[in-house]
Simulated assay, not measured.
Amino acid sequence: MSNAPVDTGRRRFLTAATAVIGGAGAVAVAVPFVKSWNPSAKAKAAGAPVEVNISKLEPGQLIRVEWRGKPVWIVRRTDAVLAELPKIDADLRDPNSLEPQQPSYAQNPERSIKPEYFIAVGICTHLGCSPTYLPDSFGEQVEGVNSGFFCPCHGSKFDMAGRVFQGVPAPLNLVIPPHHYVDDNNVMIGLEQGEA
């Protein structure tokens, strides 16, 4: 053992330098780790609202857009389709859209803000298949009803307001996504009026 005097100044310097380098290393490791908790740009874009131009949508035509990875249908309904809606209420499970999954603006016979346009998530409420739009041949599924949506997976049927018929596997009407009209030609899917 040596009885040489201990250089306490050097010891303090080395201790401080080691602490600073260790702290910097901890920050260097922590920053990417904390950033990994934030959603990626792709994830942010997937949940972002979608603006759709509906000015060229013809009566009876359906267009599909993607919002949050789900298909959203926009259908321009004809006057004949709108006139047919109240006539089939007795055949429907929830004709007045009273189930709580509906926004307040979908609690009307058309289930829409503007009767002419029907906007819904195109996924069956039974097991998540995508129903088929039958604009002229739905009568083969439900007698006396010309247009509607038929789910080929398990046979669920929905009218042109996305209301589910009785006696099919689907328990609820099709989901109406949050949306609002930006102007006469554009609709914003994913945000209700006044949301930013």
Rank of each mutant, 00 (worst) to 15 (best):
I113P: 01
P103N: 10
W37L: 12
F149Y: 11
G194S: 10
L62G: 07
A170W: 00
E143A: 13
S40W: 04
T132Y: 00
L127E: 06
I74R: 06
I74W: 08
E66P: 05
I88E: 11
G60R: 06
V142R: 00
G9S: 12
V34N: 05
T18D: 09
D183L: 02
R76C: 12
L82R: 12
H154W: 09
P32R: 05
L14C: 12
H126S: 08
V27T: 13
E84R: 09
E99R: 13
S36R: 06
A170Q: 00
Q61E: 15
A4R: 15
P177A: 01
A4E: 15
D91P: 05
N38T: 09
P171F: 04
A80S: 14
P131A: 02
H179L: 04
T8G: 14
R77D: 10
I176V: 10
Y105D: 11
P49G: 07
Q102Y: 12
F158H: 02
R68Y: 09
L62N: 07
K42I: 07
V65P: 03
A161W: 01
Q107M: 13
V75C: 08
P5N: 14
V75H: 07
Y133K: 05
N185H: 06
A17V: 10
V52K: 03
K56T: 14
G148R: 01
Q61T: 02
M160K: 03
V34M: 10
G47K: 11
I176T: 10
D79M: 10
R93Q: 14
D91K: 14
Q101N: 14
Q193S: 12
F165T: 01
T8D: 14
A30D: 08
K56I: 05
I88L: 14
G139D: 06
P131G: 01
D7K: 15
C151V: 04
Q166H: 02
K44Q: 07
P178H: 04
H180P: 01
P49L: 03
N3Y: 14
P178L: 01
Y181N: 02
E143C: 01
E110D: 13
N186R: 13
F150K: 02
A48Q: 06
F150E: 10
L174Y: 02
V145L: 08
C124E: 03
V81H: 02
F13R: 13
K114S: 11
T8R: 15
E58Q: 14
C129M: 00
P71S: 13
G155C: 09
P177K: 04
E66F: 08
P115A: 13
A90G: 13
Q193G: 02
F150Q: 11
